[in-house]
């Protein structure tokens, strides 16, 4: 006779616990996936954008000469790994979403853009570089992406905190459901509990009976929730793949992130088990 057999399968609230846990794990997995993906993306944005700057040379009559001078000045600057002036076609492609692909772009005076990659080993004094480029042309501008990147990262961090708050609320709600479910099961099986109590069962022995049941139900619900989450994330990843943008391309999960999601059913089982344990121990403490 297994210990769990002492508490027969509940026909009441306990029967729905796996499904409630499944829903909770689904939401928790979505929130975790979003948080982890944002965290990964933020890191990528930071490393990508912090290591590059863009130099913009406004269109003028001697634009080509200025481009040559600026390119030379950049290549002579210590700490710059790579300098690549963008071709007109590339600039036109960047403007295409706003101006369309017609002949209009060809007629417009386009600035020259230089994509500059900074060396990770050596820092560049951007203020001195800006001064040096201003000697070539006072309207030449360096865009180091920091303001835009800062806003993006702040937004990302805020979203991650919101995800954490969601996770905390999901945990709280799960605990509340488990407490009510365990109390209902405890009341439904009060006759068995009282008998075990009179026969000399330790409180921990009785609590373990409920803990095992709750853990099994939590694990079952967790696995169901994870399976639904996996399907939902797969569908989302297919949709995101259709969006050809630099931002959405970074919204991926690392193997560690995927492992964290896979651990959610275990965490759900642990949470339900420990909550059931504490609930039963508290109920038993009211008995002599």
């Amino acid at each position: 006779m297994a210990g769990t057999d002492l508490i027969p399968d509940s026909e009441g609230a306990g029967r729905f616990l796996p499904w409630v846990v499944a829903v909770m794990v689904f939401f928790a997995a979505l929130a975790s996936a979003a948080g982890l993906a944002l965290n990964q993306a933020t890191g990528t944005w930071r490393s990508d954008l912090a290591s590059t700057i863009t130099v913009e040379i406004p269109p003028q009559e001697n634009a080509q000469a200025r481009l040559t001078a600026v390119t030379k000045a950049l290549r002579d600057t210590p700490g710059i790994a790579r300098v690549r002036p963008l071709q007109v076609a590339e600039i036109a492609k960047l403007l295409q979403p706003w101006l369309g692909g017609g002949a209009l772009i060809d007629d417009l005076p386009l600035p020259h853009l230089i994509d500059v990659h900074l060396s990770p080993e050596q820092s560049v004094d951007l203020v001195a570089l800006a001064r040096q480029l201003a000697d070539i042309g006072p309207d030449i501008r360096i865009d180091d992406h920091q303001i835009w990147l800062g806003k993006l990262i702040r937004l990302s961090r805020s979203l991650q905190w919101m995800m954490l708050a969601c996770l905390a609320m999901i945990c709280f709600a799960t605990c509340a459901v488990v407490i009510f479910g365990t109390r209902a099961a405890f009341t439904a099986h009060l006759e068995v509990v009282s008998l075990l109590h009179v026969m000399g069962a330790q409180d921990s022995y009785i609590a373990k009976l409920f803990l095992r049941r709750a853990m099994l139900m939590g694990l079952k619900g967790g696995l169901i929730g994870l399976a639904v989450t996996a399907a939902a994330l797969y569908a989302l990843s297919r949709l995101a793949a259709d969006l050809e943008g630099p931002l959405f391309g970074n919204l991926t999960l690392t193997p560690l992130g995927l492992l964290s999601l896979a651990a959610l059913p275990l965490l759900a089982a642990l949470l339900t088990a420990m909550t059931a344990w504490r609930t039963v121990m508290r109920e038993l403490s009211r008995m002599p």
């Binding site: 006779m1 057999d5 002492l6 027969p8 006759e191 068995v192 008998l195 075990l196 026969m199 000399g200 069962a201 022995y205």
Partner: peptide, 20 residues
Amino acid sequence: FRLLSHLSIFDNVALPLRLA
């Protein structure tokens, strides 16, 4: 009597020993 109907007669009687 307070016999547990979801257990067999054997398991009902064995309960105190198993608890111990």
